[in-house]
Amino acid sequence: MALNTPQITPTKKITVRAIGEELPRGDYQRCPQCDMLFSLPEINSHQSAYCPRCQAKIRDGRDWSLTRLAAMAFTMLLLMPFAWGEPLLHIWLLGIRIDANVMQGIWQMTKQGDAITGSMVFFCVIGAPLILVTSIAYLWFGNRLGMNLRPVLLMLERLKEWVMLDIYLVGIGVASIKVQDYAHIQAGVGLFSFVALVILTTVTLSHLNVEELWERFYPQRPATRRDEKLRVCLGCHFTGYPDQRGRCPRCHIPLRLRRRHSLQKCWAALLASIVLLLPANLLPISIIYLNGGRQEDTILSGIMSLASSNIAVAGIVFIASILVPFTKVIVMFTLLLSIHFKCQQGLRTRILLLRMVTWIGRWSMLDLFVISLTMSLINRDQILAFTMGPAAFYFGAAVILTILAVEWLDSRLLWDAHESGNARFDD
Rank of each mutant, 00 (worst) to 15 (best):
E296C: 14
W92G: 04
R362N: 03
I126M: 09
L282N: 12
F141K: 01
A223D: 11
L354T: 09
D410R: 00
F122V: 15
I351M: 11
D410Y: 00
L257V: 08
V121R: 00
V163N: 06
V121L: 10
V406R: 02
L234V: 06
S206L: 15
N4F: 09
I58K: 09
L154A: 03
I400F: 05
H418E: 10
T224W: 08
Q186S: 15
R247S: 08
D63Y: 15
E211M: 14
A398P: 05
L94W: 09
W363A: 05
W92T: 05
E419Y: 15
N4E: 11
W107H: 15
G171V: 06
Y241T: 01
K328H: 00
L270S: 11
S364R: 00
Y50N: 15
G188F: 06
H237Y: 08
W64T: 15
K342E: 12
T9S: 14
C266M: 06
K57C: 12
V329Y: 04
I288K: 00
F141P: 05
H90R: 13
G188V: 07
L197I: 04
E215V: 14
W107M: 13
V152P: 04
T358C: 10
V317L: 03
R259C: 08
I288W: 00
E212Y: 15
I185T: 05
Q7A: 15
G389F: 00
Y168C: 12
L230V: 06
V102C: 05
R424H: 15
W363R: 05
V357A: 07
L205N: 13
A196R: 00
V329M: 06
F217I: 14
W214M: 15
I288G: 01
G105K: 01
K111F: 02
G85W: 07
S45E: 10
E22I: 11
L130C: 14
A312P: 09
W107E: 14
Q108C: 15
Y168E: 09
G146L: 03
I253L: 06
T75L: 05
L3I: 11
W359Y: 11
L353K: 12
P10M: 11
K111D: 11
F123Q: 02
P249L: 06
P32F: 12
M356R: 07
A312F: 05
V331H: 09
T358N: 14
E212P: 14
T75S: 15
S39Q: 08
R97P: 05
A223Q: 10
D227G: 08
C233P: 00
M147L: 06
S411E: 11
G20Y: 07
L409M: 10
V399C: 13
L208I: 14
D166F: 15
R294Q: 15
T110R: 09
R260L: 04
A312V: 11
L79W: 14
D99L: 06
L37H: 08
L3T: 13
Q104P: 02
I351W: 15
R250Y: 02
L353E: 05
F82E: 08
W107I: 09
I167E: 06
M76P: 04
E228M: 09
T298A: 08
L300Q: 03
V198P: 07
L132Q: 04
I288A: 03
L79N: 08
D426N: 15
S364I: 00
L234Y: 12
L413V: 10
L191D: 03
S48E: 15
P81D: 13
G142A: 14
C266W: 01
R245S: 07
D99Y: 08
G190K: 04
G118D: 03
Q104M: 13
L130M: 15
S420C: 11
T224H: 11
S376E: 15
I330Q: 09
M356C: 12
V210P: 14
L23C: 09
A398R: 02
R59D: 10
G20E: 10
F425A: 15
L336Y: 07
V232Y: 13
